[in-house]
Write a protein that binds this DNA or RNA. Structure first.
Lengths: 229, 229
DNA sequence: ACAAAAGTGTTAGTGTTACACCCATGA
DNA sequence: TCATGGGTGTAACACTAACACTTTTGT
């Protein structure tokens, strides 16, 4: 199917032989727990990096779309299916995998903490800012994902993909703060959220302790990440 | 080198066979001509899509970094080496190439029109907003690149990669306008550029016709794309 | 003198930031 | 009544957008 000319197309620069590649899809799955932003990791069951923590992911099947593979590996590592998934970046350093040439088409995924399932024993949630040493270049992939997520907070409604059906504004603010890594002004935050018109009060409220109950909000268009501003 | 377990890792979801893939790097090379934004295309010398216009690019060699491959294919199609290149997106629909499964790690590149070389006969510049029908999914790739470029004008100094050593503010404004596809206010544009502090007057000026000569500017830190605002 | 593009400031409006107190509840 | 987090408005500032005339040159 592949003509010899295709494999030697680049005669101008000398002999360049096109390779056959393994392609992996690795996924950075974030969730917002009570106190911190967490990332799903799995212990690698095989060499190389046997027993080392790594991102969920693995080889792409021959007829599989990229995002479908990312979702399949996530499903396997966590039992989860309905998630927000987007392509992040493709990591392809020739020496990134000691077994040979493997590209990784990394994806960024978000999970509502409340809809998590019980994890298989080899998977666990880790605090996003205190990860163990990861296999391969997975540490770099997580950093890239964190930057992307923080950047997207500024101009999209992506953070809502981390929120449950009903939530308070303080809860939403806490999620923003754990992603951005710093405190936000309460009044300004609430003004901005209202201006975006992406959430609406349900009318209900939630008693959360020895203090005034908080209004509950819901997402106006769930499942839809809008670009704003 | 690849254990059988690796190729059949996903037992939970049934038999999934990891494939071997061809990987291409295709490049959307933009340049700012006098009147319009242009994209470099090449005529495919081989089936499929024999004789059809396509993006410069081709298969990745076995030990080659992704960006290096993008630069190699550009060099071959245009004789050009010193360019701005960044990864754009990875296109991987299983049916995107009739020959079989080929992923394309698309790149966005920028060239100063003044430093173009003479093209080989199979390559040509086309107006970015009036392209012919392209091979494969290359039309979609160009659209993605156009969106990325326009978005990056808003928060980075990437447009300077399209400018020659010395240029006038009107020239720079024309480049912004051809990317964004609409007119900008002259005074506001100049104010913004000055605020960014990414260019400086050379002291020289340029006589361009029956009118007042324009001051020439240069880039303060050439080769460096800054994120601003 | 005319045509053609270069160059230049001000104002109104909009969005952003900083900041402090009262409210409703449970213990 | 006290502790706790929920909820609210305003003023200064910065940024953006709209807008028109004078300058310098070549013909």
């Amino acid at each position: 199917m592949w003509a010899r000319e295709d494999e030697l197309e680049s005669l101008a620069t000398g002999m360049v032989v096109a390779g056959d590649f393994k392609v992996a899809t690795d996924v950075v799955l974030f969730t917002a727990r009570e106190e911190d932003l967490a990332v799903l990791l799995v212990r690698r069951p095989r060499p190389p990096f046997d027993g080392c923590w790594a991102l969920p992911g693995g080889l792409l099947a021959v007829d599989e779309p990229l995002e479908a593979a990312a979702r399949r590996w996530l499903d396997e590592a966590s039992g989860l299916r309905k998630l927000y998934v987007e392509q992040l970046y493709t990591f392809g350093r020739p020496d990134r995998d000691p077994r040979g040439r493997v590209l990784s088409v990394a994806h960024l995924a978000l999970l509502r903490w409340q809809s998590r399932a019980t994890l298989p024993s080899e998977a666990a949630w880790w605090p996003a800012r205190a990860l163990p040493v990861l296999a391969l270049d997975h540490g770099e992939i997580v950093q890239t994902a964190l930057c992307r997520l923080a950047a997207k907070l500024q101009y999209s409604t992506i953070a809502l993909q981390l929120m449950p059906d009903r939530f308070t504004l303080s809860h939403l603010q806490a999620v923003y703060e754990m992603i951005l890594g710093g405190p936000l002004d309460k009044r300004n935050f609430r003004k901005r959220m209202q201006a975006l018109r992406c959430i609406e009060p349900t009318g209900e409220s939630w008693r959360g302790g020895n203090h005034r109950p908080a209004r509950l909000y819901r997402i106006r268009e769930p499942g839809c990440v809008e670009i704003v501003k």
